[in-house]
Design a protein around this nucleic acid. Sequence first.
DNA 1: AAATATCGAGCGAGCGCTCGTTTTTAATGT
DNA 2: ACATTAAAAACGAGCGCTCGCTCGATATTT
Lengths: 232, 232
Amino acid sequence: MKFEAFKDSVRLSMEDICEEFLARNRDRIKVKKDRVAVKNLAKIFEATLRVSNEKGFASMSLRDLSREAGLSMGALYSYISSKDELLDMVQQQGRSLVFKILGEHIEEIPDPREKLKAGIQTHLYLSEVVQPWFYFSYMETKNLPRGVHRKAIEAELFTEKIFAGIIEEGIGKGLFRKVDPQMTSAALKAMLQDWYLKRWKHERRRLSVEQYAEFVIELMSAYLDAKEEKGG
Amino acid sequence: MKFEAFKDSVRLSMEDICEEFLARNRDRIKVKKDRVAVKNLAKIFEATLRVSNEKGFASMSLRDLSREAGLSMGALYSYISSKDELLDMVQQQGRSLVFKILGEHIEEIPDPREKLKAGIQTHLYLSEVVQPWFYFSYMETKNLPRGVHRKAIEAELFTEKIFAGIIEEGIGKGLFRKVDPQMTSAALKAMLQDWYLKRWKHERRRLSVEQYAEFVIELMSAYLDAKEEKGG
DNA sequence: AAATATCGAGCGAGCGCTCGTTTTTAATGT
DNA sequence: ACATTAAAAACGAGCGCTCGCTCGATATTT
């Protein structure tokens, strides 16, 4: 699948995301009119991601956020109940995005080779479309309070298990050689994360997400297909 | 080289590191007696890394640091001139560590294959010995003020260029197939970074740094040695 | 007893957050 | 069409507190 096709098929503008968020969290938003709420939530999320990804969530004051979102302190507090809750809101929405989109795009592919390719592509394409969410989730995980921190760790392991499962199935069917699925999946994940963590680098190099996806798929294929023999 | 041998050959206890730091920054430490200065610098660096890596540098107050290091606010300010400078001190010392050790361990190896292996091993072993420094450098880079931020980015590209250079040389000598050295090096770097960024994961899995090094070397070899043919 | 090192209360600024007030919105009666 | 009005939303000065940082007093070393 091409990136542009993917981008069009998923509806993930900031407003779309906020609409979904509002539906799932209608009770904790004090503002009653959906149209108003979605519009301002979009402002708040956008500003939170922009400012936080620049200087870190802890260093973003609510006055910064208020100014950047174009809302007063009071208005801000009609949408969040505390700064900590805001952190949780962004994290939660980011995670639910991954589950939904990644699941949708690979669940019905029977061939492990194709499934692995689709998984790599989907992860990269998705992280390209919603890069600020991915970056935020990654960088602000460690600062979370205990309970929420575990949720984030589980999410990290969740995607890893998906890829490990595909690799294991491929080994079982004799398509891949006998590698360690867990380690291989971990390495793959590291490469996927590199795409959204070091975006400045890839941009500077004029590297497209499609090129990167192809590279990662080729590298993984080389490892999974290599002959067992160890000649030197 | 085995990890234990590496660990013994490099002298990188907290006191060793602080001694070197003091020598290179004698002018900006107000305390005059070296013995005292090194002892307290060690306390400060240790506490900074421990607290920052737990909750983030921005969220670590100097009162936290003062308490954890066992020094009063006043004493603290005999060693640092501001919180920002402390951030810079830790970053700088972390970087100079990598340059020195990585350079020492690979500069005189002629064979690209062996040089690549040594580079991977050294990077992983070093990041294992001084993990808190590596983790701190990675996580606290984005919060740096403009000028210092560029230094950190250059450092990121520096190590990448080392590996890209080795790969390029290997291709030139016909030892590796014609891959993109820059992308390959970037992917390798992502896997090396994963080792110190996700330590909790690898620890939980009882994975040793030697096992991980072997895995990364094997994966890279599979890619670099693979036949050009693209059969399905 | 002079030099060196440590101490910690205190400063002004800025933090997260609140709440009495003002402005905007939209349904109503004429 | 327009004035009325109550609900809804937005406002921002101000609260208690903690922040980074200073400095005169005190303790330790030589």
